[in-house]
Amino acid sequence: MAGRNGGNMLKAYSYDVKKSSLITLDASGAHNDLLKNPDLINWIDICAPDEQDYKALEAINNFHPLAIEDCRHFSMFPKMDEYEDYMFLVFHDVAIDVLERFKKSGEDAKFDEIKKCYDGDFEALGIKTFEVDFFITKNTIVTVHQSEVEAISRVADSMARGKDYFKRGRDFLLHEILDALIDQYLEVAYVWDEVIEILEEDVVNESVKDVSEKVLTLKRNHLLLRRTIIHEKDILAKLMRGGLTFGVNKRAVAYLQDLHDHISRLQDNIEINREMLSTIFEAYLSSVSNKMNRAMVKLSVIATVFMPLTFIAGIYGMNFKYLPEIEWQYGYLYVWVVFVVVAFGSYKYLHKHEII
């Protein structure tokens, strides 16, 4: 169920292991004695928390003030802090504007939407990061985020449709939430793969503008995602090794390993994309250099053809009183004949030696 207070929203779920039934907690009393019942597995999700919510957080399990303070401010990097009887975890959710357009246009129009952004609104392909904080006790998971998170909403909607994430325990619920967050990364990676493919084709066809800006924007976003997943990969590794003070269910380790593998593949994909972007940029610079060289060749040919003509014109343009050819009746015509012969001869010479 969900409770609202101004702009914030709290959702609370509790699963009775013995009765195999899902219990709806009262939003205002989500931190009551039910949370201390070892037979219950609980998930409390707080969106856009206010001061009242932060005070309620402290009351749930006497969470450390430093952890509460971390919830108030955006953390640049994911992290994991272990306390005596709970763990504080910071994960990041990522999103790009074009993913929202997919929902409106449908799956079949994905490439068209990406191409539209590529051609006219490239900033829509940049990622935005949102922090999701986890407080994990022996039987409770509390998630806190400052704005709506697609991954969290997806898990909550699945539960509303009858999906039972609680049945196998707290660690499997944690896996589902983290899996939804990591799925967002994979969707972003799919978009970037398509963008890089379009960029590569345009560079080859020499039909792209603002290559430097696009390449640097993509590399900057890849770096941001890479820094995020490196820390999250370390967190998952700690969880698999039993990083929680109160232990991780052995059956859940395989699922956490699956998430770790997803992030590892994503990390490899990011590294490959960064190398491809560097190669594309080098190809673009090479293309620009080749264009410049071709332009210089044309200018050099023109200069070479006109150089002897300029020399001849310079001779007969001198202001001496006595120049024998000045008195010739057909001198002007002879000069033009010489011009044409010299120009044609220069052209044939350059063409024969494959200079033009």
Rank of each mutant, 00 (worst) to 15 (best):
K298H: 14
F344W: 10
S289M: 10
G243Q: 09
Y185D: 10
S75L: 02
F102K: 12
M276E: 02
M1H: 15
R154W: 09
K321R: 14
E58N: 02
A151K: 00
R294M: 13
D97L: 07
K19H: 05
E201C: 09
V204A: 06
Y347S: 03
D108N: 15
A95F: 12
K138Y: 15
Y334F: 11
T137D: 10
H351D: 12
R168M: 09
I280K: 01
L66C: 05
H92L: 08
T304K: 02
D81W: 03
V337R: 05
G162H: 02
N32V: 08
D193T: 12
F166K: 01
A254W: 11
A189K: 05
F320V: 14
P49A: 01
T228K: 04
L174H: 03
M296A: 08
H73M: 04
P38D: 09
K11E: 02
M1Y: 15
V208H: 03
N37P: 05
E271Y: 08
I302A: 09
Y118I: 07
V132G: 01
E84D: 11
L299S: 05
L186D: 06
G7F: 07
G106M: 14
K110A: 08
N269C: 12
L174Q: 10
A67Y: 00
K167A: 07
M296E: 11
S286P: 08
G242E: 02
N319R: 09
G243E: 06
E100H: 15
A2W: 11
R72A: 05
A151F: 01
A124C: 10
E187T: 09
A160V: 08
T143C: 00
R274G: 09
D133T: 00
I272C: 01
C47F: 01
D261Y: 03
I23P: 07
A95V: 12
K110S: 14
Y185F: 11
N37L: 03
G247S: 01
D179V: 05
Y284S: 04
T245D: 15
A156S: 13
